[in-house]
Design a protein around this nucleic acid. Structure first.
Lengths: 109, 109
DNA sequence: TTAGTTCATTGCAATATTACAATTAATAAT
DNA sequence: ATTATTAATTGTAATATTGCAATGAACTAA
């Protein structure tokens, strides 16, 4: 089917899955790391930086933007991308809350 | 193509993406949360708990096990699942390292 | 042995994702 | 106006993912 049955899960579970899914491709991981690394914004050199074709990068950027993790502003002919820090922080809180569950219980197996 | 070009990314980037991908489905998020919630191990009641068909749950468990995040031991006719705490901790460190990047730089847009 | 229980595997259909060539849209430079 | 530059969009092919019915494998109980 290829279609996740989201209606049987909580909003929180679906939200975690949505964030995780966007990190589930190394190109998007790489894009985000690059946006964090550079001090200023990146203006379209992500294509050279990463090595995928321009439409492919554009598509990945679109997904990141759709989830609110990055912003993109037109700057002449190029577009300036950067991390949306506010949204990144709230995403981080949600993901860390999920990852940081108590591991102190006994293992059974 | 549906095939990620992993060879152009670092091992770390691919590793982050692999972990993230497994969290990219609410059923797997739900399974993991359930395994954390109960004190003892779960012995196969995940199908009732979650509401997907048995083969579907089995498939999700297989993916979690393949990545090393859970263990599954046969116990008579049933199978006992629990979090692999050692692996969970190292995965957590990798993911938090990715999520916790410095957000103090100026936004550009 | 036979029947029941539990879970993995197989096979398949439906949908999603990834990648890119070709094109378009928008602006900038001459 | 024409040309160049940059990035989004469209269309398409290849592969991946999700879900489940049917089946199989392994153990238990009678």
């Amino acid at each position: 089917m290829g279609l996740a049955k989201t209606e049987m899960f909580t909003d929180k579970q679906n939200e975690i899955a949505l964030f995780a899914k966007v990190f589930g491709h190394p190109a998007r991981v790489s894009i985000l790391q690059h946006l964090f690394k550079i001090d200023s914004c990146v203006c379209g050199d992500l294509v050279n930086e990463i090595g995928l074709a321009q439409p492919t990068i554009s598509q990945h950027l679109k997904e990141l933007k759709h989830l609110g993790l990055i912003k993109g502003n037109v700057e002449g002919t190029s577009v300036c991308y950067c991390i949306n820090k506010e949204n990144w922080s709230s995403m981080k809180a949600i993901m860390i809350d999920f990852l940081d569950q108590d591991v102190s219980n006994k293992e059974c197996c």
